[in-house]
Structures are given as C-alpha cells and as structure tokens.
C-alpha cells in the first residue's frame, strides 16, 4: 500500500448511506405535508360509508387510520426492498390485509345506507320536510345528467374549436396572424372571471338566462385561448415534412390535416378534452351566476343545496353525495395524469 491511504469502501458506504438518508428525509417531509390534503378526502369517504343519521363518527376515522397507516408503511418498506413480481405480490398482500382488517375492526360501522339517494328521489324532503332552502330537490340523477350534458357538450366544443383554430394558427400564413396571436396571448393571461357581471348582462340581453346553453358557451369561450395555445404547441411539434409529403402525394391541405396531421395530435386532444370535462363538471360560478340553476339542477348546485339544507341533520348524506360528485373527476384525472406534463403553457420562455 504505497500509493494511497484512501479507504474507497468507506467512502462508497458513506455516499450510499447519505443518499438513502436524503431520500428518506424528503419522503418523510412530503408525507408530512401531504397528510393535510389526503386526510380530509379520506374522512369524507369514511363519513359516507360509516355515518349514521345524526353525525359523523370520528372514531371510525382514527380506527381506519390506525389500520391503514401501518400497512401503508409496511408496503412502502417492502416496495423499497423487493422488485418485480415480489412488489406486485406485496401490493396484493397489503390490499388483502387492509380489507380484512378494516372489516374486522369496522365491519359493524360500514354501511351504504347514505347512498340511498341514488335510488330514492325524495331523500332530502323526507329528511327536512318541505322546509328546504333549495325548494324542490330533484332526483340526483337528473342533476347528474345535466352536469354530464354540460361537461360533455362543453368538452366537445372546446376540443373541436380549439383544435381547428390551433391548426390554422400553427400551419397557415394569413394577414394579421401575428396580431391575432398576440391578442390571443393577452386574452389568455386576462383574468376572465372578472367578467362575470358583463357576461351576465350579455346573456340576459340575448335571452339565454336560465339555460344550459349559456354556461356551456361561456365556459368554453373563457378557456378557449388557453386551450388553443396548448393545441398550437402540439401542432407546432408535428414535423412539417409529413405534411409537405402528403401534399406532394396528392392531398389537399384539408385532406392532409385530416389524414396526416390530426392523427399526430390525438394526445393533445385527449388532454384538453379531459381538462375541459373536469372544468365543466365542477362549474359553479357561472351556473349560478347565469341563473341556470333556476331551471336546471347540476351536481354543483345539488351538492351546494344539500349541504345548506341537511348538513346539520345528516352528515352521511352530504358526504355520500360528495363522493358521487367527485368520483368522475378523479377517475378522469387519474387517467389523464400522464398527459399533464406534456402540456406546455403558451410559449413561456424556457
């Protein structure tokens, strides 16, 4: 040992140890700050499945936590140590264990009675008599259907209009293109929600108050600049040579758009479609502001008035409605999560 007294093994050991310690510390920190977000959602689910008429049983929440937290930690540790199929097996085991233990400790408390509003149109009236602030509550499915129509139609319009516009802005040269893009940029940064009053007036003047059409058109429009820029980003990324090639192969520009360019931006269309749907599904301000709620119940107003009327009387019902309301958004969100990172905001400098 003439050349060196460095103990490489010790250095490597220290480096490994430091790396693991750092990962552990960061994970711990993120878990700690994420608890305030997850816990309320978890509580909502627990209330929905355990609350009896009268109030929420806090005990069940903490019991469930006491069951799930150790299992989750155990799974996380196992995940770190195992790999491949063993991980899958660990996940299955953890899931089975969680379900089994939840049944053992909470079996008596769990019930689906709070979801009776799904089959019984008159739940709210039965609870509160006729003295409901929201007056006549419809069956929840009618609100669900209206929300579905609002969100879907809105999504279709957003996807169609912004795709068409973005393609044209990305691929065609025309007089005033630069000016148009720059104005659109201002509209995109503009805080559209400040316009709720004049929009109400315009909708009133054109006679569209109390309709589903008004919020559909308004929400679509206010999101349009944002989605056009996102789609333009996708179109800008489609190589020019495929389109040039299509033209020399004999296609018109519209044919090239339909057959060659459009299939290359489906990711973008799905992404903006999902986000437009989620936006339409949650809409509250314009649905109430444009008085749509007077004629059409949607999920947001339904939940709002259920909350106003029976919050003190039946927590379970309110939580169950919330669960039903939040579920479509969540499913779509999980599905669309991978697209989120692919969207770039309208030309921000990198």
């Amino acid at each position: 040992m003439t050349h060196s007294t460095t103990d490489w093994d010790a250095l490597a050991h220290r480096a490994r140890w430091q790396r693991q310690a750092r990962t552990a510390a960061i994970t711990l920190f993120l878990v700690a700050v994420s608890i305030p977000i997850i816990l309320p959602y978890f509580w909502m689910v627990m209330i929905a499945f355990t609350a009896r008429t009268g109030g929420a049983e806090a005990d069940t929440l903490w019991t469930a936590c006491a069951v799930l937290v150790p299992i989750t930690i155990g799974y996380a540790v196992a995940y770190q140590m195992l790999s491949g199929r063993a991980r899958l097996a660990a996940a299955g085991l953890a899931l089975a264990l969680a379900i089994a233990l939840l049944f053992v400790f909470l079996g008596d408390a769990l019930h689906v009675n709070n979801f009776r509003f799904l089959v019984n149109p008159n739940v709210v009236e039965e609870l509160r008599g006729k003295a409901t602030a929201g007056a006549q509550f419809p069956w929840v499915w009618s609100a669900f259907f209206n929300s579905l129509v609002l969100a879907t139609v809105q999504m279709l319009i957003v996807v169609a209009v912004s795709t068409m516009a973005a393609y044209y802005l990305s691929r065609f040269h025309f007089m005033g293109r630069a000016a148009f893009l720059q104005s659109l940029l201002i509209l995109q940064a503009f805080p559209a929600i400040t316009l709720v009053i004049p929009i109400f007036l315009i909708v009133y003047w054109v006679g569209l108050l109390n309709t589903l059409t008004a919020p559909i058109l308004v929400i679509t429009t206010l999101e349009l600049p944002f989605f056009i820029f996102i789609m333009k980003g996708f179109f800008d990324a489609v190589p020019w040579d495929t389109e040039m090639s299509a033209l020399t192969d004999g296609a018109t520009r519209r044919q090239a758009f339909r057959m060659v360019v459009l299939p290359q931006v489906t990711t973008g269309m799905i992404a903006i479609g999902v986000f437009a749907f989620i936006k339409g599904w949650e809409e509250y301000v314009f649905v109430t502001g444009l008085r749509t709620g007077n004629s059409y119940w949607v999920m947001s107003t339904y939940l709002y008035y259920v909350r106003e009327d029976v919050m003190g009387v039946d927590y379970g019902l309110v939580a169950a409605v919330s669960v039903m309301y939040v579920l479509p958004s969540l499913i779509l969100y999980l599905f669309a999560q991978k697209y989120l990172t692919q969207m770039t905001l309208g030309g921000v400098k990198g």
């Binding site: 190589p239 040579d241 040039m244 090639s245 299509a246 020399t248 299939p263």
Partner: peptide, 19 residues
C-alpha cells in the same frame, strides 16, 4: 398545386406517416 404536379419526394427524415 403540389398535388397536380406528380412529383415524388423523399425527405431526410423520411416523413413517413406515423399513424
């Protein structure tokens, strides 16, 4: 129009239609 010229072109990147 390009479509009426009956020209064939091969690009550096080939420009095959990915779909």
């Amino acid at each position: 129009e390009p479509r009426d010229r009956n020209v064939g072109i091969v690009f550096q990147s080939y420009a095959l239609y990915p779909n």
